[in-house]
Structures are given as structure tokens and as C-alpha cells.
Design a binder for these strands. Structure first.
Length: 420
DNA sequence: TCTGGGGTCCTAGGACCC
DNA sequence: TCTGGGGTCCTAGGACCC
């Protein structure tokens, strides 16, 4: 019999912060988005105080946070990525086939593993990860991905491990599980299901008019319905190359000049091109956008966006920056207060499938230069070398007033332990 | 004063072909 | 009343995820 396991780190960003700050264990913790704009991660203690609302603006909750002595952190993605890698590496010991679904969760294929006690297996996964990384996780195991996801969610309230094996047990759980909490059923879909009188996962599972589900929720919805019935439709995915990639940021301070937007776009292109090279791909088109602050009432709003096509595929940072600046020339309007900009790289193909331009005078596309730059930055730290187009002042840069140290990725931030 | 960022999948509809 | 039929490819936009 085939089973799927889902391992999900509890309040992942907050838990990472706690690993290196043992004194805040037990204390409520939240982590903020870029620019310290709003709250995006919460421990259960913070949720219990009513702070669970995703993207609540910091300035609205700040007083209350202080009053309840909540520990507040800016997001520290280099720390989270590093700890994520450690967690995933441990999980590879537990399955021949691991699908890393996001920074804090992964599916495990457990084909034929029901010979063992799956509950004990889940407990072992949990204790190993806690012991070696300090991160608490929940483990859900069942017959399909959707069911394992559900088991995982419930497991967090009951000791961290839940195995759903036999049908009566599954139905019992489904009857109490709200349809909007099912993985893949968002707001739009749950509204439609509610209109059909479907409120629980069990009612969805047993709803007979499949044509209707197909029409309202498309193929995706039908697959979820079958997954609830124990029929596996969603297989284990291999890690594949990204089909789109990009980089965008809200600015730490308002931006008015074209010059600063050029810098910001250059930086976003630099990051995106490096991602492209890391997966040995090239892109054929680039989209860039700039816009004002939509939350700011009474100020003039503007949204500029356009694309640029390359004759041959490229992962050349300099060429991509140049493209973004050509777009900016078209979309820039002076007199606006800009708050955000970004780039997207589209039509991505593997580098060895690149159609070269017959008349290109520089067919190697600065490929070697890119590789050398990537190597240097990997060895000596991000941004050791970058294009001068990114600027040196960068007043628009993201604000992070509560950032913890790069405990695991920077030598100067490594913990010092005093003996005696 | 202050409101995140990065992805995937699916479908409808247009353009185009014979 | 009637206006061919069948197909592919691409893109924009919606929905969802963490």
C-alpha cells in the first residue's frame, strides 16, 4: 500500500529565530515582511494573543505587541534558507523519494512502508529533526497528498503526528473538517461549494455530481475530490527548473528619480539572472514594472509595465540590465512617488536548447563572466562583485530594523561560546 | 509616516493552419 | 432556417499555494 507523508515545520520563521535565542522559547514571537511592513509569521503563543492575521500592518499592531511583550523580528531569509536545507537533508534519510514543496514543508513517498508502524515512524522523523536542528515539525501520513496535508494540519493539535489509515477513521475526520481548510480550496472555491450546500470535507467527498464540480472548480477541484476519496491523483513531483523567475521589492524610502529606479531594476535583474544561471537556463523575455503606493490615499497613482524580447536566449546579467533600462525609458513618468519595482524573466529554456542568433557578434553571451562572478560571490559572500549599475548608495533599499544575525551563513556572525 | 514576495496550474479565447 | 471542421500554439487572467 502506498502512503504519503507530509512534514511541515511549525511557525517556521519564528522557530528559526528561536533556535539561536533560547530565551524567547515560550514567549510569543512574530516575524515581519520585507521593510518591516507587516506581520507574516506567528508562533502559537502570538496567535493565542490574537496576532494571527496574515499581513496585519505593523504600525497598527505595534502598541499591542509591546504591551504583550512579543518578540519581533525582521525577516532573515538567509537564515531560514540555511535551516531549511538542514531539515530537508535529514528527511532524505526517511524516504527514497522526497519532494520539497516549500521552504518549510516536504512530501515523503512511503511506498510499502505500512509494514512498519507508521505512527512510530512519524515520531522518529519529528524527534530527529528537533534534535539536529531545533525545529519542531508536524507529521501527517495518509493515502493521498490532500489527506496527508489534512492529517498534518490536525496533528499540530495532537502531539505532532497523525496517521490516517482506515476509511472509518478518515471519514470521521472529514466530517469535522471545514471545506475551506482543504489544501487547494481557497476562498473562491469554498464560496462555490457552500452554495451547493457543501460545508465539510466529507460532504465534498460524497457529493455525487462530478460534472458540476468539474465546471465550477475545474480539473484541479475534481482531483481534490478524488484525493479525499483516497484515490491518489497528485503524484510526487520532481524538482524542476523554474518556468518563470523574478525579483521585486517595495522600497524602504520613496523614490522619485529615474536614476534610482535604474539602480533598483539593475539589482533585481542581477538577482534574477543569477537564479537563471544556477539552473543552467536562459530566458527570451523580460518584464519590468514600477508603481506608486496603492495604499496611499490622495496621492497620484501610476503603474508602468512593459516587456522586452531577446533575439537569443540569455542569462547575461549585463544584457538583462540593459533590457530593463530600455523598458524603464518607455514606462517612466516623472512626478510620481514610486514605492515598488520589479522584474520577471519569462520564456525560460535550458541553456543547451538556446537558439543562437545567427548574426550575434557576441555569441558566448558573457557566459564565462557570469560564472566567474557567481563563483566569487558564492565564496566571498553575496554582492562581493556586481554591476556598477546597481549603485552604491541605494537609499531605496529595504528596511530591516529587527534583523537577527546570519548565524549560519556568515563567519562574523557565528555564535561564540564562553566556557567557564 | 508605516500595508511582502515568489511561485504553479488551469482555462478561455484569439490567431493561425490546412 | 441555413453560414465547415478540426487542430495547435500562445497569452492573459484567475485561483491557489507558502
Amino acid at each position: 500500500m502506498r502512503y504519503f507523508g507530509l512534514v511541515d515545520c511549525n511557525s517556521f520563521y519564528c522557530s528559526c529565530e528561536r533556535v539561536f535565542r533560547p530565551e524567547i522559547r515560550g514567549r510569543p514571537v512574530i516575524v515581519l515582511s520585507n521593510n518591516d511592513g507587516c506581520a507574516i509569521a506567528f508562533t502559537k503563543e502570538a496567535k493565542a494573543l490574537g496576532f494571527g492575521e496574515m499581513c496585519a500592518p505593523l504600525y497598527q499592531i505595534q502598541d499591542s505587541l509591546r504591551k504583550h511583550n512579543v518578540a519581533v523580528f525582521s525577516s532573515n531569509y538567509s537564515l531560514y534558507d540555511n535551516i531549511s536545507r538542514r531539515v530537508m537533508s535529514i528527511l532524505t534519510n526517511f524516504t527514497p523519494h522526497l519532494e520539497i514543496y516549500s521552504v518549510d514543508e516536504a512530501f515523503l513517498e512511503l511506498d510499502g512502508f505500512d509494514k512498519f508502524d507508521l505512527f512510530d515512524y512519524g515520531k522518529k522523523i519529528r524527534s530527529d529533526i528537533l534534535q539536529f536542528t531545533g525545529i519542531p515539525v508536524g507529521v501527517g501520513i495518509s493515502k493521498t497528498k490532500v489527506l496527508s496535508k489534512m492529517a498534518n494540519k490536525i496533528s499540530k493539535k495532537q502531539g505532532g503526528v497523525l496517521v490516517l489509515k482506515d476509511d472509518d477513521e478518515i471519514d470521521h475526520v472529514l466530517k469535522k473538517f471545514p471545506v475551506e481548510d482543504i489544501w487547494g480550496i481557497g476562498r473562491a472555491s469554498s464560496t462555490k461549494l457552500n452554495m451547493l450546500g457543501i460545508k465539510t470535507a466529507y460532504e465534498f467527498k460524497t457529493y455525487q455530481n462530478e460534472r458540476m464540480i468539474q465546471n465550477l472548480l475545474t480539473k484541479t477541484g475534481r482531483q481534490i475530490q478524488d484525493e479525499l476519496r483516497g484515490i491518489s491523483c497528485l503524484s510526487m513531483d520532481k524538482a524542476e527548473d523554474k518556468k518563470n523567475t523574478g525579483n521585486s521589492r517595495s522600497f524602504g524610502a520613496s523614490v522619485y528619480t529615474k536614476r534610482e529606479l535604474q539602480e533598483a531594476l539593475a539589482e533585481f535583474c542581477t538577482n534574477s539572472a543569477a537564479k537563471l544561471r544556477a539552473q543552467k537556463s536562459v530566458c527570451y523575455s523580460l518584464t519590468a514594472f514600477i508603481h506608486t503606493n496603492p495604499f496611499k490615499d490622495g496621492s497620484a497613482q501610476y503603474y508602468g509595465i512593459d516587456s522586452h524580447n531577446f533575439v537569443s536566449g540569455t542569462s547575461d546579467t549585463l544584457r538583462i540590465i540593459k533590457g530593463s533600462h530600455q523598458i524603464l525609458d518607455k514606462i517612466f513618468r516623472s512626478g510620481y512617488e514610486y514605492k515598488k519595482a520589479g522584474v520577471l524573466l519569462n520564456h525560460i529554456v535550458p541553456r543547451d536548447q538556446n537558439q543562437m542568433d545567427l548574426f550575434d557578434k557576441n555569441p558566448d553571451d558573457n557566459e564565462k563572466l557570469g560564472q566567474v562572478v557567481d563563483l566569487i560571490n558564492k565564496r566571498y559572500g553575496a554582492k562581493t562583485i556586481q554591476s556598477a549599475a546597481c549603485g552604491s548608495n541605494q537609499a531605496w533599499r529595504t528596511v530591516a530594523n529587527f534583523r537577527s544575525a546570519k548565524y549560519t551563513t556568515s563567519w562574523k556572525d557565528i555564535l561564540r561560546i564562553k566556557l567557564g
